[in-house]
Design a protein around this nucleic acid. Structure first.
Length: 368
DNA sequence: AATGCGTGGTA
DNA sequence: TTACCAAGCAT
C-alpha cells in the first residue's frame, strides 16, 4: 500500500471526525477555520470559531460587519492582520464571486490571507479536490519519512518538501488525505514523543527504521530576541482609562491600548509634560505599577505601567492632537465583571492588566 | 529571500 | 525558566 492509501485508511479509522469545522462542512466554514488555524493550535481556535460562526453564519454577514467588531471577537487569538485580511477576503467573495467561494487555487490565493497551503486546504477539505498542503504537520511527517536533514526554514528545503507533497497526492479522496496527514502529524507523528508503534507509515519511514526520529525536522536557526521597553500610561478618571487605537500595521494592529511613552531619559516626572504636549491632557502622576513582561516570537516587551489621574472633570475633552493620531475611547474598568468587560479589542497583556486593576489581589495588604 | 507578525502549550 | 513552535501569509 502506498503512502497516500495508508494515510487515507488510517484517517477513516483513527482520524478526527467531529471538529466544529468538520460538521456542516461548507467552504465558508472551512476557509474561516483554516485562517484561524494558521500558526495556531486546534484547541485554541475552537472557541473562537464557535463564536464567529454563531455571530456570522455566512460570508456575506462577515463581509458586512464592522471591522472593530471582528477585531473584538478576534482579540486574544493573535496575528491580528489575519482578521483584517479575513474581512477583505469576505468582501471579495461577495463582490467578485457572488458570495460563493471559488474552487480554483489561483482564485483562492488572490484572497487576502489565503496562501498556497490554505488554498489547498480549502480545495481539498471543502471541494474534495486533490491539492497539496504544507503545514507544520506535513513538514514534520515528510522530514521524518524521507530523513530530510535540511533546516526547515531554508528555501531549498521548503521547495523539496512542496515537491514531495505534490508527488504523494492521491488521485481521489483528497479531502480524507489532507485531513489524514494533519491528523497523523497532530496525533501520531508529534514533535515530542511520537507514537511510531501506532503509525501506518512506520515500516517505510526512514527516520524510524534508522532510529533517528528525534533528529527530524531539523530546527530552524533563530536570531536572538531583542528587548523593547516603554512606559504604559494609564490615564484614569472615574474608573475610565484612555485607550488609543493602534495603527493597522505593526504589533497589535487595529487594537486598542493605553498610550505608550518611550522617553530617551528615564525622567518619569516628565510624563505629565508629555501628556500635556502630546495628548492635551492635564494629568497627575499617581504611582508606578508592577512591570509587565510579554513575550512575542521575535522580541520581548517590557511595559512599565504608570497610573495617572486626569485633572478637571471633562472626560470627553480630548484635544485634537490625539485625534490626529487616530480614534480614542475611555475604557470602563470596574470590579463588577460584567461592567468591566465591554466589547473592546484589547491585546492579551492589556486585558490582563485591566482585570488586575479592577480586581486587585489582596487589596488589604497590597502584596500577595 | 528574509523578516514581521500573537499567543499558549510543552518539555 | 527558557526555548521552541503550532492547520502560514504578507511584504
Amino acid at each position: 500500500m502506498n503512502f497516500a492509501q495508508a494515510i487515507i485508511q488510517w484517517q477513516q479509522q483513527y482520524g478526527r471526525q467531529d471538529l466544529p469545522w468538520q460538521l456542516q462542512r461548507t467552504p465558508y466554514r472551512v476557509w474561516l477555520s483554516e485562517v484561524m488555524l494558521q500558526q495556531t493550535q486546534v484547541a485554541t481556535v475552537i472557541p473562537y470559531f464557535v463564536r464567529f460562526t454563531e455571530r456570522f453564519s455566512t460570508v456575506a454577514e462577515l463581509a458586512a460587519a464592522q471591522l472593530d467588531d471582528l477585531l473584538t471577537l478576534w482579540s486574544g487569538l493573535g496575528y491580528y492582520a489575519r482578521c483584517r485580511h479575513l474581512q477583505r477576503a469576505a468582501q471579495m467573495v461577495v463582490s467578485e464571486f457572488n458570495g460563493e467561494f471559488p474552487a480554483t487555487a489561483t482564485a483562492l490565493q488572490r484572497l487576502p490571507g489565503v496562501g498556497r497551503s490554505t488554498a489547498a486546504a480549502i480545495l481539498s477539505l471543502a471541494f474534495g479536490h486533490s491539492a497539496a498542503i504544507l503545514d507544520g504537520n506535513v513538514r514534520r511527517i515528510l522530514c521524518r519519512y524521507f530523513a530530510i536533514s535540511g533546516a526547515v526554514n531554508h528555501a531549498a528545503t521548503q521547495q523539496q518538501l512542496w515537491q514531495l507533497a505534490e508527488d504523494l497526492l492521491p488521485p481521489q479522496q483528497g479531502d480524507i488525505y489532507t485531513q489524514g496527514v494533519m491528523d497523523l502529524g497532530a496525533l501520531i507523528c508529534r514533535r515530542h514523543t511520537p507514537l511510531c508503534s501506532r503509525c501506518p507509515l512506520q515500516s517505510h519511514c526512514l527516520a524510524h527504521t534508522t532510529d533517528t526520529v528525534a533528529a527530524y525536522p531539523q530546527a530552524a536557526t533563530r536570531k536572538e530576541r531583542p528587548q523593547r521597553h516603554c512606559y504604559l500610561l494609564l490615564i484614569e478618571q472615574n474608573q475610565h482609562y484612555l485607550l488609543l487605537q493602534r495603527p493597522p500595521s505593526g504589533i497589535w494592529g487595529g487594537l486598542w491600548s493605553p498610550p505608550e511613552w518611550s522617553p530617551d531619559l528615564k525622567q518619569i516626572t516628565a510624563v505629565e509634560i508629555w501628556c500635556q504636549q502630546k495628548l492635551g491632557l492635564n494629568c497627575t502622576l499617581q504611582r508606578q505599577l508592577p512591570p509587565i513582561t510579554h513575550d512575542f516570537t521575535h522580541f520581548r516587551l517590557h511595559l512599565e505601567p504608570l497610573l495617572l489621574q486626569l485633572k478637571g472633570g471633562d472626560l470627553h475633552h480630548v484635544k485634537s492632537t490625539i485625534k490626529e493620531n487616530g480614534a480614542t475611547l475611555w475604557y470602563k474598568c470596574a470590579p463588577d465583571s460584567t461592567a468591566a468587560s465591554p466589547a473592546v479589542a484589547l491585546p492579551t497583556p492589556i486585558k490582563r492588566l485591566f482585570a488586575a486593576l479592577a480586581n486587585p489581589p489582596n487589596s488589604a495588604t497590597g502584596e500577595s
